[in-house]
Nucleic acid binder design. Structure first.
Lengths: 240, 240
DNA sequence: TCCGCGCGTGACGATTTCGTGATATCCTGC
DNA sequence: GCAGGATATCACGAAATCGTCACGCGCGGA
């Protein structure tokens, strides 16, 4: 955050910390610019009226240097000119002072949502569709079919299956699955995973007692099997 | 690129040049139109707010002249009318200001990927008219008919339906719908989407309690059903 | 100014899903 | 074979989600 008013800086830092954000404050443009250019940040919150360097110039120089860190601009001027110019020089969003913290949080969230959506659309195009034997998973449609027959999964069941399908063969512990599917802050019993695995198998396995897709790794956790043609009656950690 | 603001034109040109793109800038609509019509371009980046010719008119005229060069629209207006209308008039994608350079580049890449994938661009014009069972949506006239009977939808209801119809089968979360239909950074409750879905169903579904077009994806969001004739999905692999 | 309409919000019941405990079954080491 | 621990299965109450209705607000037209 590049902001010369320390009261505002402190207030915003405080609230962003609630969102598990790590915040670093620079009180002048030059220092801020060096920080922004050097570090690997998720977001720059930039006051337009800075001593040392104009905010617009800050924007322009950062973008000219091929830095694509999202920028959220703060401005006291409500002038349309500044706003449009700022956006066109590469800011991602703007807020006019005075602004409410609530509004700021909303903007920050919106920026991250957008970036997330783009990242998903950009890099994961090959991962929207996963196939393993009869099983076909479509991430975008959140649909699963077995031999072209649609199977209805609940949200948790689908997320669980998708987590496996993303890395076929990789073994996940129950705790890892809780973190990945339920969320990091979630506190619950590892036993819960068993239950969902059980329900998942009942829907996608021909014989739930002898699963082909979601396999148990004894004493460790579970894994997704995409090598269906190989004989794998062994369910123990003994691999060879 | 058709853009009257020289700053943003320069900025975008700069970054597109990094992608080994050759960029030509026109600062008004008429010049841009002549350029677009005469030359053999891979992409037109078009500012909606142009002097000389409205961006939407630009779109419409180019498509009317059987020119199918991909168009990426830029707009400062956050009005969803403009966004949806732009797509309906033949734009391939759009960006609402504020946007980041990174987003722009991602969009450009996405458009080219899509073109490669679909090679001989089919269904380009079909975006103006979407059909699903009895339901017919005419994007240009913003009209909807069921079995040739006209249905009166409000602006929000139509935009919501159109958002679904553009990607049949794709699951949208309420937050995504808020971002797409209401606009980025919109501060509102996800519950609002429920209400509009409810009103939409009351108008287009024969039996709102058992919808055929706009389906609920439990724990996630909603989707538009493009396979009306398919039987109801099974709850398990048995009975197969 | 009044009225009607579209829209966002709140409340409440119906439905689905989820987490947990109990119990049975299986695996492993001795 | 046996003991101990890990996993599978099942059922049930709790919790979250969704559908529906009603209310109030803001806005544009009569």
């Amino acid at each position: 955050m590049v902001e010369d008013n320390e009261d505002i800086a402190r207030l915003v830092s405080l609230h962003l910390a609630d969102l598990d954000c790590h915040v670093r404050v620079a009180t002048d443009g030059c220092t801020g610019f060096e920080l922004a250019r050097a570090g690997d940040w998720d977001l720059v919150i930039l006051d337009l009226m800075l001593p040392g360097m104009e905010g617009l110039e800050f924007c322009r120089r950062l973008r000219a240097g091929r830095h694509y860190t999202p920028i959220l601009m703060l401005t006291a001027k409500s002038s349309e000119l500044d706003r449009v110019l700022g956006l066109e020089l590469g800011a991602d969003d703007y807020l006019t002072k005075p602004f409410s913290i609530r509004e700021l949080i909303a903007r920050v969230r919106a920026i991250f949502r957008r970036l997330e959506a783009f990242a998903a659309a950009e890099g994961r195009e090959s991962e929207v569709r996963v196939e393993a034997g009869d099983l076909v998973i479509d991430a975008e449609r959140r649909s699963v079919t077995i031999a072209d027959l649609p199977v209805e999964l609940t949200a948790r069941e689908f997320d669980l299956l998708m987590q496996f399908a993303r890395n076929p063969g990789r073994v996940y512990t129950r705790q890892q699955l809780l973190d990945l599917v339920w969320g990091h802050g979630h506190d619950g019993y590892e036993h819960t995973v068993n239950s969902h695995i059980n329900r998942l198998r009942a829907k996608i396995e021909r014989d739930p007692a002898h699963p082909r897709y979601v396999l148990t790794v004894w004493g460790v956790g579970y894994k997704f099997n995409d090598r269906l043609d190989e004989p794998a009656p062994r369910q123990g950690p003994e691999t060879g």
